[in-house]
Simulated scan of single mutants.
Amino acid sequence: MADELIFYTNPMSRGQIVRWMLEEVGAPYEPRILDYGTTMKEAAYLAVNPMGKVPAIVHNGKVVTECAAICAYLADAFPDKGLAPALTGRADYYRWLFFTAGPVEQAITAKMFGFEPDAEQQRMAGFGSLAAALDALESAVSGKSFIAGDHFSAADVYVGSQIDWGLQFGTIASRPAFEAYIAPLRERVAYKRAKDIDNALIAEMQAANPA
């Protein structure tokens, strides 16, 4: 089917990032909700993503995994939506999109798992330390409405999602620059629509499987 777009996700996953991006794109897509430990690990889905993790998309028969890659891909696949800067203006776009997907997420994960690199390890670890990664991220958003240039982009979906989740779950300490950056992003129509969809799905799952 021309322009077929399939979205594999679970509402309690990083799939929420891609859901927001898809709602910003506004193109029709077919969501397929997978369960941890069952359908996410079955052969049919492992043929899509051998990691057995979500999210993933299949667009016109081509698979894309990893949230930052999916956001960047969708921005390019639907250029009329204006979700990527012109090629001459993509330095900050690529820099902060992949910095947040790399050092920031690595630093947060290390902290959650109880790993605090010492001074020597910080020299070898790409993220250095959580404090250093968050200081750099703070510098990127301070005094800005958008992470790359004067317009909202796919990088704001990804960076905004990481800050949004971090503030919500306490993995990123509140800082004025983070709060000021994320506040208007939370008011975007696509953000709210995506949250409503995933929150409704979460409620359905919880009702079907009460604790």
Rank of each mutant, 00 (worst) to 15 (best):
G82C: 07
A154S: 14
Y181C: 08
R14L: 06
F169T: 15
T88M: 13
I57R: 02
R175K: 15
D80T: 13
L97F: 08
V104F: 04
P184V: 07
E30T: 15
G128T: 00
V64Y: 06
D92H: 09
G52I: 08
D150S: 14
G89K: 15
S174L: 01
S129R: 00
K195F: 11
A72D: 15
F98N: 11
C71V: 15
P31T: 04
G37F: 03
I147Q: 04
L5S: 10
T100R: 05
A200W: 06
M112H: 09
N209E: 09
F113R: 14
M112L: 15
R95T: 15
R123C: 03
R175L: 04
I163G: 08
Y8P: 01
E187A: 14
A203L: 07
E138F: 01
P85F: 03
D118T: 02
G89I: 07
G61A: 05
K53V: 10
A148V: 00
Y181F: 11
R193P: 00
V54I: 15
L83F: 08
N49F: 05
A211H: 08
I108F: 02
A91Y: 15
A86L: 12
M51V: 14
D164K: 12
D118N: 14
M12Q: 15
A131E: 14
M40T: 12
P50V: 08
P50I: 05
M12E: 13
K144H: 08
A27N: 05
F115K: 11
A43P: 08
T38E: 13
M205T: 07
N49G: 02
L130A: 01
C67E: 12
R193S: 13
V18Q: 08
P11D: 10
P11T: 07
N10V: 04
A44I: 02
D156P: 00
A136I: 01
A136F: 06
A173M: 00
V25R: 05
P50E: 11
K41Y: 05
M21Y: 10
P31H: 09
E187P: 06
G126T: 12
A131G: 12
Q168N: 15
A133I: 00
A43C: 06
G82A: 08
G160E: 10
